[in-house]
Design a protein around this nucleic acid. Sequence first.
DNA 1: TCGATCCTGTAG
DNA 2: CTACAGGATCGA
Length: 269
Amino acid sequence: MPELPEVEAICRKLRRQVTGLRITGGCVERPSVTRPQKPHWILSRVVGRVMDSVERRGKHILLQLSGGWVLLIHLRMTGNLVVVPDVRFRSPAVRAWLEMEGGRGLVFEDPRALGRMRLLRPGEDRTALEAVGVEPLSSEFTSEQFLMIASRSRLPAKLFLMDQGRVAGLGNIYAAEALFRAGIHPARPMHRIRRARLEALHGHIIAVLEEAVASAEHAYEAPGRLLETEEFVCAVYGRRGEHCLRCGRCIRRMPQGGRSTYYCPGCQR
DNA sequence: TCGATCCTGTAG
DNA sequence: CTACAGGATCGA
C-alpha cells in the first residue's frame, strides 16, 4: 500500500478523524513493531496526551502529541492506520492500537509486521527524518533543484528515484511509472541523462504523484469502485509480458536492488 | 553494490 | 513446494 500517495491519503483522513482527541489507552500486540523501544515506555507516555496534528514526511507519519511528543509511524510494505468504532473488535493483523476519548480506536494493522512505530521526546534530534530528501509535492522541488541533485549522481535512474535521501516518498511503483512517462531506461545512470529529459522527468514525478494521491484519496473515502477517471492505472508496473499501451512491445521485468523493475524496452532507452 | 534480514500472505 | 510482494537497514 504505502508509497507517498497512499501515506498522504491516510494522513488526510486521519487528520479529520483524530485531531484534537485525547488518547485514553492502548496496547502493543507485537513488541517488534516498536523495537528498540519498549511498548510500555511508549504507551505510558502517550496515554493522556492529545493528538494535536498529523503530518507526513516522505513515507513517515508524524502524530504530534501535546507536550511536544511525536509518535512516528512507518508503514513499510503492508501497514495501515485506521480508525475503528471499537477496539474490542479488531482484526488479527492489528499490531498496536490506541483508544481515544469517545471510545474509538486508532489502529495500526500490518500483516507482515514490518512497519515501525517510535516515540520521539520533545525536541529530540530527529536524525532519521533529517536524512529524508526533498518533498516532491512541495515548492522546494523545483526543476533546477532536481537537475542539481540528479546530475551529481551515478546511480541507475530507478534506484536514484527510490533513494529516500534524495527525493522523499517514491517507491517501486511510482518510480517505474515516472520513468516510463519520461522515456528513461531504469538502469540509465542519472548523470548521463540529458537536461531536457530530466526536466521532463521532474514534471512526470509530480504528475504521477498528484494523480496517485487523488486516486488513493478516493479509494479511502469511498470503499467500492473508483470511476475510471479517478483511478490511477499503471502503465508498466506489474505488467510483465503485456503489450505496452504506447508502442505495443512487451513490458519487461528486471531485478534492480533486489526488487522488480518494470519497463517498456521500446519506450525507455 | 550485493545479499541477508525483518515478517506473513498469496499466487503459481 | 517456490517465487514474490507497494520498504528499509545492516554487514560483507
